[in-house]
Design a protein around this nucleic acid. Structure first.
Length: 702
DNA sequence: CTAGGGTTAG
């Protein structure tokens, strides 16, 4: 017997009952819209109802809604058809034919609540310039017809204005609605969260409580969203989230999956990993979304290792009783990010295999994440292969991933070529495209190309350069030694140079040992980011390079006075499908003596060929021997020694580091690549270093 | 009638 599959009579795909379609589905143009077949078909064609899709003849013979919807407006106006006008307007709206629907509305005497709902939804979905004028017309007409006190339609209107980002209009509707149901309140809160007006959410909540409406789980979700949409004040957001968390707990909403997941995400977004973890661990019921939220919390907070650990735990839970915890495409995107973050190619390949097994390999976001993962793991061939395999469905993210991927490998010309190919393919570049391509130029000193691309932003692509783009230019020029020109760019900027811009300049000063300019840049940076230890360390680094030890001490006192800590150096290496972590000066490591011995032996050999340790990168005013000892403890050297000991002689070694690779480690790794005949990939925060036969792919320019 | 996680850069 053929399976009975209910299909939509208009579109002939399996339908979703109307009440299951969320607003998000309705508003997203890429999601096929399902017409409300069960209700409308039953109502208007009682004899037909649902039919099995297995019978094509029946499908073809059956009247479809499209027949109604394409009735020309003039004939729809005949008295016989007039009764159907409401239905026709609704159909036109569902088909996105708002213009026709509006025409009919002007002639229809009695639009119903359902008709207004359809019109509002259609306006919200419409992306054209007409949308807001249509919206105003609908709104006005609705008021004239006395529907403005209908809380259901008020909710819809508020949601529509939220979609336009028109908080004021939403607020007006909200204020004028006398009977404020919990839906009305929630819609208003959601609007504030969406518009980034989180500040107004708490006062609104107080009003809501005062009005006597009882809060529901949706209220808490929107409230939490509102708290994290004000990015500048993490500590304030933290206090607020904890306060809301307290309420959630007190009123027993913590056990609700949606609320708890939003809490996890809220803590994640402000960097409070421990709090997120605590909520997650206490969740009585977890599903794929909660797991994904926690995994992405780890990746987003530079704790990819824990993200992978959690993913493995998630798969272990993936049993018959727990089928709701199946990893899905969103999970995979975060997991792939984690693999990329650690340059864990073997892990990445395993995840890729899992993706194929689960049939998630055709989801665009997953493919894009795969491209980025392979590029970040140093496997450009596989990245390119993935990119080529979607030649018909590349979006701006796919292109950006390739461009930045080539960039971090130091293949600037290749990155520019891909960029041009993208333009020829008619894909409009995004601001991120330019950050990527300018970054690619910067890595290899393609100054002229970079300037040309920067100028083309506004001229050819209608994009206004942001502070990030200026920072790219300052980096490009500064690195290449054009410090004065970099400084001029900052002076001539039309927008306020943010910390990224000054940071780039400071970085350039470090490379070229420009103390005076560094002092200027850092004083601006200290004002803007008083708590960013990295800036202080960079300045101290520059002083150390100039052997100005008193100044080094002064900067370090500044750090200590504020109780700020230098971000500890940390390296990862993947060996036999395991990821190992090394910290700088890693006394706890069980193999530490063996590792030190190996490094020491290699360094001795190197000294015979003329190597001199780069002790200037050590920020302590110690004697030479002590400095050299500190250099030996750098995390990347430990990881490298571990890799040499624990792998076969021909194997490629891949290491990732959380900071910039230091000069000494760079020199040592070059030597080892030749001496031990090893190919060694090291990815630092900025880019790849591919060591082979005593040379590095960066050409010592990094 | 409403809700939760994700893709590129720095």
């Amino acid at each position: 017997m053929m399976a009975m599959v209910a299909t939509c009579c208009t579109h002939r795909h399996p339908y979703q009952p109307l009440h299951r379609i969320t607003l998000a589905h309705r508003l997203r143009s890429d999601v096929p819209l399902h017409c409300s077949c069960p209700s409308s078909v039953r109502r208007h064609h009682p004899r037909h109802g649902l039919y099995p899709s297995a019978n094509p003849a029946a499908v073809a013979a059956s009247p479809s809604l499209r027949v109604y919807a394409t009735v020309p407006v003039s004939s729809a106006l005949s008295p016989a058809a007039a009764a159907n006008n409401n239905h026709i307007i609704q159909c036109l709206c569902r088909q996105g034919n708002l213009r026709q629907a509006m025409k009919l509305l002007s002639l229809e005497a009695n639009p119903t609540q359902r008709t207004y709902e359809a019109l509002i939804l259609s306006c919200a979905r419409c992306r054209g310039n007409d949308a807001s004028s249509f919206a105003d017309t609908v709104h006005q007409r609705l008021v004239d017809d006395g529907y403005d006190q209908d809380p259901f339609l008020s909710t819809r209107l508020i949601e529509m204005y939220a979609e336009f980002g028109a908080v004021g209009d939403a607020r007006q509707v909200f204020e004028r609605t006398r009977e404020k149901t919990v839906f009305v309140w929630n819609a208003m809160l959601r609007t504030l969260a969406l518009a980034g007006a989180g500040e107004e959410a708490l006062p609104l909540l107080r009003e809501m409580v005062a009005s006597g409406v009882s809060l529901d789980s949706f209220t808490y979700s929107f409230l939490l969203k509102a708290c994290i949409c004000v990015p500048s004040h993490f500590s304030l957001a933290f206090r607020r989230i904890r306060e809301i968390h307290g309420h959630v707990f007190r009123y027993g909403f913590e056990s609700q999956v949606h609320v708890a997941t939003t809490l996890v995400d809220a803590y994640a977004k402000i960097g409070q990993v421990l709090y997120a973890r605590r909520v997650f661990d206490w969740m009585p019921v977890k599903n794929a979304v909660s797991w994904s939220a926690m995994i992405s919390c780890f990746t987003k907070n530079e704790r990819s290792f824990e993200a992978l650990q959690l993913f493995h735990k998630m798969m272990a839970e993936d049993t018959d009783q727990n089928h709701k915890s199946f990893p899905n495409s969103v999970t995979m995107v975060s997991v792939l990010q984690a693999c990329g973050g650690l340059s864990a190619l073997e892990q990445g390949k395993m995840v890729h295999a899992y993706i194929l097994r689960r049939g998630l390999n055709s989801v665009p976001s997953v493919v894009n994440a795969l491209i980025a993962m392979y590029m970040k793991c140093g496997n450009m061939e596989s990245g390119r292969q993935m990119f080529d395999s979607i030649s018909n469905q590349r979006d701006v993210v796919s292109w950006n991933s390739m461009i930045s991927g080539y960039g971090i490998h130091g293949l600037g010309k290749e990155a520019i070529r891909v960029f041009q190919e993208m333009i020829s393919a008619g894909i409009p570049p995004s601001p991120i495209t330019f950050v990527s391509v300018l970054g690619a130029c910067s890595h290899v000193g393609l100054v002229e190309d970079g300037k040309r691309l920067f100028n083309s932003m506004a001229r050819e692509h209608g994009l206004v350069p942001s502070a990030e783009h200026y920072a790219c230019m300052v980096d490009l020029l500064g690195r290449a030694g054009h410090l004065e020109e970099a400084g001029r760019i900052i002076e001539e900027m039309r927008i306020e140079p943010g910390p990224t811009v000054w940071g780039s300049l400071l970085g350039a000063c470090r490379i070229h040992g420009h103390v005076e300019l560094a002092e200027r840049a850092s004083s601006r940076l200290f004002q803007m980011e008083p708590k960013n230890a990295g800036n202080f360390v960079l300045l101290a680094d520059i002083y150390a390079g100039a052997k100005m030890w008193e100044e080094v001490g002064r900067v370090k006192k500044l750090l200590e006075a504020q109780n700020l800590q230098k971000l500890p150096g940390c390296s990862w290496i993947e060996m036999k499908r395991n990821v190992y972590t090394f910290l700088s000066v890693d006394e706890m490591n069980p193999q530490i003596e063996q590792l030190h011995a190996l490094i020491l032996r290699l360094v001795m050999e190197m000294k015979e060929t003329g190597y001199v340790p780069e002790t200037n990168v050590v920020l302590y005013d110690l004697d030479q021997e002590e400095k050299e000892r500190i250099l030996l403890g750098h995390s990347e050297k430990l990881a490298l020694a571990f890799g040499l000991i624990n792998s076969g002689s021909g194997e490629v070694i891949r290491i990732t580091k959380n900071l910039r690779l230091c000069e000494d480690c760079h020199a040592v790794t070059k030597f080892i690549s030749k001496f031990a005949k090893r190919e060694i990939f090291v990815r630092d925060v900025n880019r790849f270093h591919h060591f082979r036969e005593g040379l590095c792919s960066c050409g010592d320019y990094w």
